[in-house]
Amino acid sequence: MVRLSPEEKIYIIHGVEDNIREDGRSQTQYRPIEVETGIIPSAMGSARVKLGNTDVIACVKADTFTPTWNKPDEGKLQLHVDLSATASPWFEGRRGEQTSEEITTILNKAYESIKLESFCIVPQVKCWLVDVDISVLSCDGNMYDAIGFAVKAALATTMVPKIVASEEDEGEKELQITDDPFDTWTPNVSNIPCLVTLSKVGDSVMVDATNKEEQCSSFTCILAVTETGKILSTFKVGPGSVQPVTFSKLILEASSIGRSLHSELLSALKKENGLRKREIHGFLN
């Protein structure tokens, strides 16, 4: 991570306050977002998201489990983050492990209150347990937003062989996996939120901060916003505090940004799905 001198910080802060940032963006403008799905053939679903120089890959694997008695028709969604040492030497060894663990806990908390009734196969018998493994290959700020995109994109393109319950004798249900390779189950992603990170720099609020801008921000919070603009989770990261007035402004902004991000992402996925034959680019730009 590049350390900034006080003068450089003042330059960046003044830029954000004047609504022209270092790279020419406005306060509420994201860097160009690249999403590519299906880049890992062995996974049930995968997506790579590039947000400027931030690079994130998400892989989905699905398993089944017996639900607990008090939640008989709810599936599970588990996230696991791995910070690659290629992103920053900071992530090497024990320290990287600790940071990954912290981020994993935060993310699982943010995704905790999603309604997952669509992840149910047969109530009280079997539900889907969906694991999402995220690896951060390169990090230039705003990692959480990129992770949010990658998770949603990967889940939206996941294909798992369908499991059907057939009524057997004695009223017991037997589960069978279909033989037809085109008969698949895809998770319903309408409940999956997007993460929106907002940082307060000087007197103004901005989205999608780069590494340098993150160093200048006095307050950062992350909101999980659904497609309808509802808030699933809000949490503060990093040191710093904020006035209640600014904070409510921040929440309002996050909700509207979150909604537009959802519509952009869904239309992009739809467009990609419509392509008849698509070459997978991967790392060959």
């Binding site: 908390k109 905790e112 209150s113 309604k115 919070c221 659904t226 603009g229 509802k230 808030i231 699933l232 989770s233 809000t234 949490f235 503060k236 505090s241 904020v242 006035q243 209640p244 904070f247 409510s248 929440i251 309002l252 909700s255």
Partner: peptide
């Protein structure tokens, strides 16, 4: 968590599903 004299929110953690307006009212 809130500092009363300085009028600053130092920590905020919300979990669940909430409408925007409700979230703001609850904060007050």
């Amino acid at each position: 968590s809130y500092m009363s004299t300085a009028d600053q929110i130092t920590h905020y953690y919300q979990n669940g599903e909430m409408d925007l307006q409700l979230l703001l009212d609850t904060m007050d």
